[in-house]
Design a protein around this nucleic acid. Structure first.
Length: 585
DNA sequence: TCTATATCACCC
DNA sequence: AAACGGGTGATATAGA
């Protein structure tokens, strides 16, 4: 399919903008915009005061026209800030470029300059681009010369789009690019919503964290002398080990193996090491200063859609509240009168594998609600009336086995994980192969397709090119992860379309917010949408979801982080202890 | 003193 | 070389 005809024009658009008050986490403030129609070359150049006076974009944005941008959520964020209606048809050349080159080596990155270079087109020099970006980010006021320079720079990007679009036209998956464009719009809306944060706790944590670190180190390191300030010195630890005659595992490079797992093992033999291990865990890196929280207390950052090979979003771990350790999620707190729900697909990858492979036993296991226990039953390892309580240990092993299969893990690694002999791990993996024969035939077929055809793709057209050093585990996992990413996008589009306040997508989960009075209904609707999205990707097979709900003034908490959260809050003298978990549905 | 690399921790 | 998929990012150490 070639590009459809758009009587209202094909509009290539770029904005320059900076976050309000120069603070990450705030909505963007548009500085200028340039729009150019592809065939007529009609061009609109507007400065921020002129933009602010317009009730809508100064070009058609209805069904008759196509809006083209490079990483469109940026432009859409400016539309939101200006209160303009969103374009009906969006083509995002960033998405098109990622899709067209996914898995291939690219010469100059995934930015606009990289896409131009890939197509053999020339562009503004990168350092010149950086200088102009800095000028914009500096914030106003800009004198007449600067204004002119910024507008010219903005227009140069639009001219670049005008060259890039014809060059890429044949590589664009037209019907699918429309859906991906809708997701770009939705991403902007989600970014604008953001995640509500308890800013008081955040400030207390920022101010108190250094003190807590030092107290912990002083208390524990007295017996070791391996820290210098807050840094663990390898050299000092070597000395400690030598003087205590402890033989420590080493990496192939000869250096000490400092993995937490290793510490755990060594602490078993030398219990005096346990406090040091706990200290290392507690001090794990955390740069709260980068968490992008706006003046209104909402965490907003670029979600970096389609960044990963599987099409997942890949936001910065420091800017996004779902990036750092789970205990920091205690900072998430619904705004007054509101509630939040973290709704995640249950065993998403297992369900996708079952549906795509058409393995009926696997589908039945998924439908049972507890695939791990169902697998154990199907394999004859536990009686039919077994429960997750009566056969917890066996279920845990079968669960580990299912996860191992999803990532292509071998028997050795699985054995290590479940603390069992390799023979037992091999037996479990064998049981999986025998119980889910159809899945394995399909999975082998995926690998063949990848290696012989050089390409894998999802139900809705995301694709991966196989490089010259193919990793079979990675390729076999692609359909699960990439189709999971696909259904997340569909669900987000539907939810935003239905007026649900989506705060964040988290790979296999969606955080939504609603007024307390509507919360239960919105959660039910979200779960229905997620079910429908899975059916759309999986030819009718439906995946269920779990919802974790919190209501203001409760805070959100991941149970895995509860202990650490309480410890830190006690140290800070803050009365924000979490007692027990929130409700689930 | 700055940068590159290796290693590690964290997320789903 | 290892054999656990997709990531971001901090930190320690080595090298320039």
């Amino acid at each position: 399919m070639t590009m459809p005809h758009y009587p209202g024009g094909v509009w290539l658009v770029d904005f320059e903008f900076h976050p309000a008050n120069g603070r990450e986490g705030n909505l963007p403030v548009p500085v200028c915009m340039v729009a150019r129609e592809l065939t007529s070359s009609r061009t609109v150049r507007l400065w921020q005061d002129e933009l602010a006076r317009l009730p809508a974009a100064p070009f058609p944005t209805d069904e008759s026209a196509l809006f083209v941008a490079y990483y469109a959520p940026a432009e859409m964020g400016c539309f939101i800030a200006l209160g303009w209606p969103m374009p009906a048809n969006v083509l995002d050349l960033f998405i098109a470029f990622r899709r067209h080159t996914n898995g291939k080596r690219i010469p100059a990155g995934n930015g606009l300059l990289g896409a131009l270079a890939y197509s053999g087109l020339d562009a503004l020099a990168a350092d010149e681009k950086d200088a102009m970006r800095d000028l914009v980010l500096r914030g106003g006021p800009w004198d007449a010369v600067e204004q002119r320079a910024i507008l010219d720079y903005c227009e140069s990007d639009v001219l670049a789009l005008a060259k890039l679009l014809p060059a890429m036209q044949g590589d664009i998956d037209w019907p699918r690019s429309a859906l991906q464009g809708r997701y770009a719009v939705v991403v902007a809306q989600i970014e604008a919503n953001g995640v509500p944060i308890d800013t008081e706790a955040l400030v207390a944590l920022k101010n108190g964290w250094q003190g807590i670190q030092h107290r912990l180190i002083t208390a524990v390191d007295a017996g070791f002398g391996v820290y210098e300030g807050t840094t663990f010195k390898l050299e000092r630890f070597e000395r400690y080990l030598a003087s205590h005659r402890i033989a420590w595992p080493r990496l192939p490079s000869g250096g000490l193996d400092l993995q937490d797992d290793t510490f755990k093992d060594m602490a078993r033999m030398h219990p005096q090491l346990s406090p040091l291990r706990e200290l290392r865990g507690a001090l794990s890196q955390m740069r709260l200063s980068d968490l992008a929280v706006g003046d209104d207390g909402r965490n907003r950052c670029m979600l970096s859609m389609f960044r990963s090979k599987t099409g997942r979003n890949q936001p910065s771990n420091t800017r996004f509240i779902f990036g750092p350790s789970v205990w920091l999620r205690g900072l998430i707190q619904p705004s007054e009168g509101h509630g939040l729900a973290y709704v995640d697909w249950s065993q998403q990858e297992f369900g996708i594998a079952a549906a795509l492979s058409g393995d009926t036993a696997m589908m039945a296991a998924y439908a049972s609600g507890d695939p791990y226990l169902a697998f154990a039953k199907q394999a004859g390892a536990v009686p039919q009336d077994a429960t997750k309580h009566s056969h917890k240990a066996v279920r845990d092993q079968f669960k580990a086995c299912v996860l191992a299969v999803q990532y292509g893990m071998g028997a050795e690694s699985l054995a290590y994980r479940i603390n069992q002999p390799t023979a037992r791990a091999r037996e479990l993996l064998d049981l999986h192969r025998r119980t889910y024969r159809r899945f394995w035939a399909w999975s082998d077929g995926v690998l063949h397709q990848a290696l012989l055809g050089g390409r894998l793709w999802t139900t809705f057209g995301w694709q991966l090119f196989v490089d010259d050093t193919p990793n079979g585990r990675s390729l076999c996992n692609f359909p699960m992860q990439a189709n999971g990413s696909e259904m997340l996008r569909l669900a987000c589009i539907r939810l935003i379309g239905d007026g649900v306040r989506v705060c964040a997508p988290v790979h296999d989960a969606i955080l939504i917010e609603a007024p307390l009075a509507d919360l239960d209904a919105v959660v039910a609707h979200t779960q229905a949408v997620m079910r429908a999205a899975s059916a759309a990707v999986l030819d009718g097979f439906m995946l269920e979801s779990d919802a974790k709900i919190v209501r203001a003034p409760e805070r959100y908490m991941d149970e895995r982080g509860e202990r650490m959260w309480n410890t830190v809050m006690d140290q800070l003298g803050l009365d924000t202890r979490i007692v027990g978990a929130g409700g689930t549905a």
